[in-house]
Simulated scan of single mutants.
Amino acid sequence: MAMVTFVDETTSGDRRDALGLPVAEERLALRELIRRRVLQETAEGAQEAYERALAAFGSNGFLVLVGDRQLTDLDERVDLTASTEVTFLRLVPLVGG
Rank of each mutant, 00 (worst) to 15 (best):
V23P: 05
R27E: 11
L71P: 00
N60R: 12
T72K: 14
G13Q: 13
L91S: 00
V86P: 03
V66A: 03
R90T: 15
R37P: 00
G45A: 02
V64L: 04
G13D: 09
G20P: 15
F6M: 04
T72N: 04
G97F: 12
A18W: 07
A55D: 12
G97Y: 12
S59P: 06
E51R: 08
L54P: 08
G45I: 11
F88Q: 01
G45D: 02
Q70M: 13
M1T: 13
A55Q: 12
E25M: 10
V64F: 09
A82N: 05
V38R: 13
A55L: 15
A56C: 09
A49P: 03
R15W: 06
A24T: 14
A46Q: 02
A82M: 11
V78T: 02
E9V: 11
F88E: 00
F6P: 03
L89H: 01
D73M: 05
E44A: 07
Q70P: 09
A56K: 15
T11W: 11
E41G: 03
M1A: 08
L65K: 15
D68L: 08
Q47K: 05
V95K: 03
I34N: 08
L80P: 03
L94Y: 09
A56W: 13
A49C: 06
E25F: 09
N60E: 10
R37G: 00
D8G: 11
V78A: 09
V95N: 05
G20I: 09
P93A: 01
A55P: 06
V4E: 07
E85N: 04
V78D: 06
E32C: 01
D17F: 14
V4D: 02
F57R: 13
R36G: 01
F88V: 06
R37T: 00
A29F: 08
E44F: 14
L21F: 12
R35N: 06
V23E: 05
P93V: 04
F88D: 00
A2D: 01
F6S: 01
L39E: 09
T84V: 03
G61K: 08
L54G: 01
P22D: 11
D8C: 10
L65Y: 15
E9N: 05
P93L: 02
E76S: 02
V23D: 01
L89F: 04
D14G: 11
